[in-house]
Design a binder for these strands. Structure first.
Length: 366
DNA sequence: CTGGGGAGGGGGCCC
DNA sequence: AGGGCCCCCTCCCCA
């Protein structure tokens, strides 16, 4: 007994999930375009991807071998088994680039396709129609990338629809819950969420990490040549200098337009003396949210939170951290070690910061 | 309801 | 560039 369309339906679902960014656990960076996808799907389609996604949530592809528009086709092929030709390039050029990419990515099925398959068949054309909303939205085209001019319109037009889907309670569980869950022996659950909180924290448009408005980060210039930004991280600069705020805001589920506009205004505003000095003291902007940092290392560390990169995993519970030091701290939860002792009352703490806040209690007038 | 403690996350800074 | 540490904010639990 076998359901005739089972595989097809499954793939269709997965592709729709990709379009929404639902359960996507890996980001593929091609030049300055970001594509979200599922590790399982990528791993199943190519040994090369399999090795890449094994340990990383963020994959940078060689731009010599693949460009964003080709990779978009590749990704569509992986999720649909169909090849949709690119309209903005000659099919010869496109097919050649596709073959190069397929070979580079070790997508043997794709690499072995006869040329005729690359032409848009009536069938694929119809698929293209049905799936265009989701397929074309699987990436973000970032400023400076002119490969997807026509697609940007589709991207924009699909934004509204996707905003509605973003409001639906289908994302991963809120971070707060996860964190709390961590204390209730639900760590493994959290681990399975892959990119986890930052993941759904991102301003998704049909699973796409939303690119900026034009000229977004150009005002500050200099810091990053390949400035891709998103409208995430409406910041902290004015008030909530805090990550929790940040994530809470995002957990709200929606990235309201006001935020975007607000930030857009900030960044596009003429640079007054204060903003210039701000730029001088914080010369390292985040490519994703535009937040400025004093040191490159701080900025790259910050980027990890955008990208959901948590390389440091607790062997005991599977909880993952963005920093080694956090893991070290966390391990004391398991070991019961409390190295920080209050000299006034003898209270012991696993973390120094908690000792400090405890000391404040001793010293505060109240 | 409130205060204290535990813990996750972020940024700054030094090495 | 990355590690380590400090400081801060916040959330949640619990007494």
């Amino acid at each position: 007994m076998e359901l005739p369309n089972h595989a097809k339906q499954l793939l269709l679902q997965l592709n729709q999930q990709r379009a929404k960014g639902f359960l996507c656990d890996v980001i593929i960076v091609v030049e300055n375009a970001l594509f979200r996808a599922h590790k399982n799907i990528l791993a199943a389609s190519s040994i090369y991807f399999k090795s890449l996604v094994l340990h990383d949530n963020l994959i940078n592809l060689d731009t010599e071998m693949v460009n964003p528009s080709v990779f978009r086709q590749v990704l569509d092929f992986i999720y649909t088994g169909k090849l949709l030709s690119s309209s903005d390039q000659s099919s010869e050029q496109n097919f050649s680039a596709l073959l190069t990419a397929a070979s580079y990515l070790q997508l043997h099925d794709l690499a072995a396709l006869p040329h005729s398959n690359s032409q848009e068949s009536p069938q694929s054309a119809s698929v293209s129609t049905t799936n265009s909303a989701s397929l074309d939205d699987s990436s973000t085209t970032l400023p400076g990338v002119d490969t997807c001019g026509s697609e940007n319109m589709e991207l924009n037009s699909s934004c509204k629809a996707s905003e509605e889907t973003q409001n639906q309670p289908e994302g991963p569980p809120p971070q707060k819950k996860s964190r709390q869950g961590a204390r209730k022996n639900e760590w493994p659950k959290k681990e399975t969420s892959g990119l986890k909180s930052e993941d759904h924290d991102r301003p998704l448009v049909n699973g796409v990490i939303v690119g900026p408005k034009e000229g977004r980060s150009s005002g500050v210039g200099g810091g990053s040549s390949s400035s891709f930004t998103s409208d995430q991280c409406k910041d902290e600069e004015d008030g909530g200098e805090n990550g929790q705020d940040h994530s809470d805001e995002k957990e709200g589920g929606t990235f309201v337009k006001e935020e975007d506009e607000e930030e857009a205004e900030d960044l596009s505003a003429p640079m007054g003396p204060s903003s210039i000095s701000h730029w001088l003291t914080r010369p390292f902007p985040c490519n994703i949210c535009g937040k400025m940092f004093t040191q490159r290392g701080t900025m790259t560390r910050h980027m990890r939170s955008h990208l959901g990169l948590k390389p440091f995993a607790c062997e005991e519970c599977g909880m993952r951290f963005t920093r080694q030091y956090r893991l070290t701290e966390h391990m004391r939860v398991h070991s019961g070690e409390k190295p920080y002792e209050c000299q006034l009352c003898g209270g012991k703490f696993t973390q120094q910061r908690n000792l400090i806040s405890h000391l404040r209690m001793h010293t505060s007038p109240s």
